[in-house]
Design a protein around this nucleic acid. Structure first.
Length: 299
DNA sequence: CTCATTTGACCAGC
DNA sequence: GCTGGTCAAATGAG
């Protein structure tokens, strides 16, 4: 089985490398400094975007097809494994089992994290459900815990913590844990099934406005592989009036360049820590730093 | 009725 | 033992 895992991983890497190359080209196009000067048309950029998206999609497909392999590398992204998958079977002997099961979770300490700081809570286009709030000793304000709404229906493991760190001026620090593996239904036109090699779907979600700390947000690329069975949860569309920076890479290449308040976005991948100003770099390759280090920089 | 939030309890890690 | 992260029952909102 290890052989299959290696093979898939190699394919995934190849796909990511291909995407990186496309991203580089795309950056050149966007910067208006296309070297060969022959392909600065919007359609070319669009094509590049599609290539990049396809790269992500295929890569994820390869990786997802072998969830058991390479557990050291991706153990923290348990895409399809819901810790509560057995809950539905536990209707009887509830109270006693509940007590045994409560708190039986794995903490995700070494997981990749991203941090954002902003003057206002961030709306990143994903739907979040608050599952806890805690007074933190070293902090003046309680910390709020959010998980992806699709944790159970799609096994999305993404979580985030939002904490107000400053009173004057108001400053929120949002820390993201894990990748979104759920399907963002807000923009179905580009949501395609990553399991299908001919389709592509990726959201790179970086945004910096969010109406209330309890609302939806998420800065990650979101991939998905499940049918749109979620009914009432596709309201996560970020209202244009309150949020710009449509982290969503659509084939329309709609990158909002409107000035916003500054948000510090940083990512940590074990030993690596980055900090960028999102007003300058709308896209960060945090997730795929190794393979995608120059991924995109849109203004 | 369904889904989100609140909140106290439970548990892992330090 | 303390702190912080998560669970899940209770409650509220739409």
């Amino acid at each position: 089985m290890a052989k299959l895992g290696c093979s898939s991983r190699r394919k995934a890497i190849e796909e990511l490398l291909r995407g990186r190359d496309c991203a580089k080209q795309l950056r050149s196009v966007i910067n208006g400094s296309c070297e060969d000067g022959s392909s600065t048309t919007p359609s070319f950029a669009e094509q590049l975007v599609k290539e990049v998206l396809m790269s992500f999609t295929n890569s994820l497909s390869f990786l997802k097809n072998n969830p058991t392999s390479e557990s050291h590398d991706v153990s923290n992204v348990q895409v399809c494994e819901s810790p509560k998958s057995e809950d539905s079977q536990e209707s009887n002997c509830k109270s006693s089992i509940i007590k045994e099961r409560r708190g039986c979770y794995k903490r995700r300490r070494t997981e990749q994290t991203w941090e954002k700081e902003s003057e206002a809570p961030i709306d990143d286009g994903h739907q979040w459900r608050k599952y806890g709030q805690k007074e933190i000793l070293s902090a003046k304000f309680p910390r709020n815990y959010y998980r992806c709404t699709h944790k159970f229906d799609q096994g999305c493991q993404a979580t985030k913590q939002v904490q107000r760190v400053q009173e004057e001026p108001i400053l929120y620090k949002t820390t993201y844990y894990g990748l979104h593996t759920c399907k963002n239904l807000a923009n179905p036109e580009i949501i395609l099934d990553p399991m299908s090699p001919s389709s592509s779907s990726k959201f790179l979600s970086f945004d910096n406005s969010f109406p209330t700390p309890s609302k939806q947000e998420c800065p990650f690329l979101s991939s998905s592989n499940l049918p749109s069975s979620v009914k009432g949860e596709c309201k996560e569309e970020v209202p244009p009036s309150t949020s710009s920076n449509h982290y969503l890479i659509s084939s329309d290449l709609t990158f909002d360049s409107s000035p916003r308040h500054h948000v510090t976005l940083s990512s940590t991948l074990d030993s690596e820590y980055k900090s960028v100003d999102i007003s300058d770099v709308l896209y960060d390759s945090a997730q795929l730093d190794d393979a995608f280090e120059p991924f995109l920089e849109f203004r």
